[in-house]
Amino acid sequence: MRSLTSTLDCIGVGTGRNVSVLRDLFGFFRGRLPDDPTGAAVTVSLQAQLRALAGRHVHLNVISVGLDTLDATGQRDADNKIDYAIHRTRTIYATVSLGVGRVEHYAISAADSAGRDDLGSEGEADDLSDEWSVPNDGIDAFVVRNISDTDFVGISPRPGDCDKGDKDDGLVAGEINRGAEAFSRTFAHEIGHYLNLPHNHGDDCPDTTAEQNNLMAQTRCAISARTSVLLTGAQGTTMRGRCQTRSGCP
């Protein structure tokens, strides 16, 4: 297994400075473990993360939109929800041998967002991802302050484009004012679409418990935001095969 330094170099995290394992390797914005909404202890494993990055993995750019308008408590809650969503996504994707590698954090202020911090339509979600992009090999995942449209809780193309600057090169991973568990499931679900996973059902919700507990069941069909996060081997194969996934750091 590679050393921590060589793995950080491999995923594009500069090591010519003091690095934080929790921030730079695990991608937690606050540089510490997120709080679990149930109060359960959150644990991470350095060895497991290094092993995950030896296999296929994705890099993420988490772009918060308009969260500067939240008060100090709201911003702390938001930071924790985002870190928890990163932790949950890593845990969920690990079940199909897909790692979450470099996570960079970006912000668009409410003033700069031209009102896109509160999405009122799916078209406005397109505006947001068209207008903003991070020029690197990470998936651009926007987290907005609010979604006022009743028709969606997150939105993603399937699949996302391989190149930045194309039509479908970003996704809206959710609105920050949902509960941490639901937000984190939507976050992982939308990135799943970006990695070419369809819903696992049609207009009607699936019949079986196993299907309802799949990550790609729509929110309205999922039994639980916490436990309906399963992925099948075939879904993992699809995700690992997408152009956004990086080769392992041997």
Partner: peptide, 9 residues
């Protein structure tokens, strides 16, 4: 396309 502001520690 605009690049959002990178957030540091």
């Amino acid at each position: 396309t605009r690049t959002p502001q990178r957030l540091e520690v």
